[in-house]
Write a protein that binds this DNA or RNA. Structure first.
Ligand SMILES: [Mn+2]
Ligand SMILES: [Mn+2]
Ligand SMILES: [Zn+2]
Ligand SMILES: [Zn+2]
Lengths: 147, 147
DNA sequence: TTGAAAATGATAATCGTTTTCATTTAGCGT
DNA sequence: ACGCTAAATGAAAACGATTATCATTTTCAA
């Protein structure tokens, strides 16, 4: 990792190493606060700015990307070899990942119609998960009588 | 429109009427500030809060939905009969719409594997438009500094 | 070893969003 | 038409996540 960063022109530091390691341990959909908390468990001198900046760095070197589920909190998702989209449950806030390899392929083809060069694809579906499905109907019904 | 809102339990006001009309005149990807500016051209007594609240109302009654292109500004897009995705140019910030009717169909089918009930689909592709394609490489090199 | 460039940490600034609250208004029932 | 109540408004402040600032420390290549 140190070498990987060096070739990209960045230096390695103890804080950076801890932050990177902690991020990959957390794995998915990591917010700055979450990562900060995890990092502080091992070293409570690391600053918030440092965590934030390194999270951006992880993105810049292509190891993660931003995922925004609409709750106002920026989360960072490690980049996987297989592209995935997100199913976001509006009720329990669960975030399910699903394979979008084929769909990305089709989208990539579609963008060529616009002479557009894609860099990344975001496919996010909001709705209701298996468990929250029933209560969805109730909510809709309530909204009616509400009005 | 007045009747439409009344059936949903909302009142009509001169401000609301102006805001709704202005929103649909602007059409696509409208930020609060943009709408506020447009509204103020016709009535410079309308408050920012009122514009913001009515934009939310337009969403609540199903006439618009939030679109987030990652620049930190929430935009509101009128709901169209045909679902569309967005091509967002990372350089010139252009926002191109494209048809995703077929893809949404496939995604809807895919979600059933997860017993997930979709409510809405967000398909956003970041990249470089025709005009900005060449300078893409340079940009990546430049983006490497503190804060 | 050493100097330039980068990184850090504390803090403050920024900025879009949301809330608060006193006041006004819409529109229903009478 | 009138009065009432819930909704809507507008000014301002609160909020909160993100980003910038800056003095200090650290890395690493020469
Ligand atoms: Mn993910
Ligand atoms: Mn659009
Ligand atoms: Zn759920
Ligand atoms: Zn462009």
């Amino acid at each position: 990792m140190k070498e990987f960063l060096r070739t990209k022109g960045f230096k390695m530091t103890p804080q950076r190493e801890l932050i990177f390691r902690s991020f990959f341990e957390l794995g998915r959909h990591v917010s700055v606060d979450e990562l900060y908390d995890k990092v502080r468990l091992q070293d409570n001198t690391v600053g918030y700015s440092t965590v934030w900046r390194n999270l951006k760095l992880i993105c810049r070197v292509g190891l993660a990307e931003v995922v925004n589920i609409g709750d106002g909190i920026t989360r960072y998702d490690r980049v996987t070899n297989i592209p995935h989209g997100h199913l976001y449950c509006l009720k329990c806030k669960e975030l399910i990942e699903f394979n979008v390899e084929q769909i990305v392929g089709m989208l990539a083809h579609k963008t060529s119609d616009y002479n557009f060069t894609p860099e990344n694809f975001k496919i996010e579906i909001q709705g209701y998960c298996e468990n929250c499905r029933e209560s969805e109907v109730e909510v809709v019904e309530e909204t009616k009588s509400d009005a």
